[in-house]
Simulated assay, not measured.
Amino acid sequence: MSAAAAAVFQAGRSCRIGGRFSQSKLLHSIVSSQPMHSASAGSQQCREMSSFFFSYSSSTFSSSGSPVQNGERADIDSSAASEARPPVVFVVGAGDATGAAVARRFARDGFTACVSRRPRHAAQLQDLTESIRSAGHRAESVPLDARKPDDVVAAVDRIERDVGPIEIAVFNIGANVKFDTVDTTPRVFMKVWEMACFAGFLVGKECGQRMKQRGHGTIIFTGATASVQSNPGFSAFSSAKHGLRAVAGSLARELAPDGIHVCHVLIDGMIDTAFVRDNFPAVYADRKPRQGILSPDSIAEQYAALHRQPKDAWTFEMDLRPWVAKW
Rank of each mutant, 00 (worst) to 15 (best):
L27T: 01
S141A: 15
A304Q: 13
F106G: 00
G18V: 04
D312E: 10
A3V: 11
A305V: 04
R253D: 11
R85P: 07
V115H: 09
A94L: 12
V188R: 10
S298K: 14
G65L: 07
L266P: 01
G233T: 05
F106E: 03
E160D: 10
Q229A: 13
A224P: 03
G233N: 09
F280Y: 13
P165H: 05
A101Q: 02
L125Q: 08
M190L: 12
S64D: 14
I168P: 07
K288L: 09
A154R: 08
Y303E: 08
R187D: 15
V89C: 08
A155M: 14
A248E: 11
F171R: 06
R138C: 03
Q69T: 11
M211R: 01
K148W: 12
S14V: 06
L244I: 09
K148F: 13
S295L: 10
A252F: 06
G71R: 02
D157N: 15
V182K: 15
A123R: 15
A122R: 15
E254W: 12
F201S: 07
R253I: 02
V262K: 09
P186H: 10
G243P: 11
K288E: 04
F61Y: 07
V265A: 14
S235D: 08
S2V: 00
Q23Y: 01
S82M: 08
Q126M: 05
A246I: 03
Q213D: 11
Q23F: 04
N172W: 13
S59F: 01
P149N: 15
H37K: 03
S2I: 00
E48C: 01
R214M: 02
D127W: 03
S82C: 13
Q213C: 05
D268K: 11
R120E: 15
M36A: 03
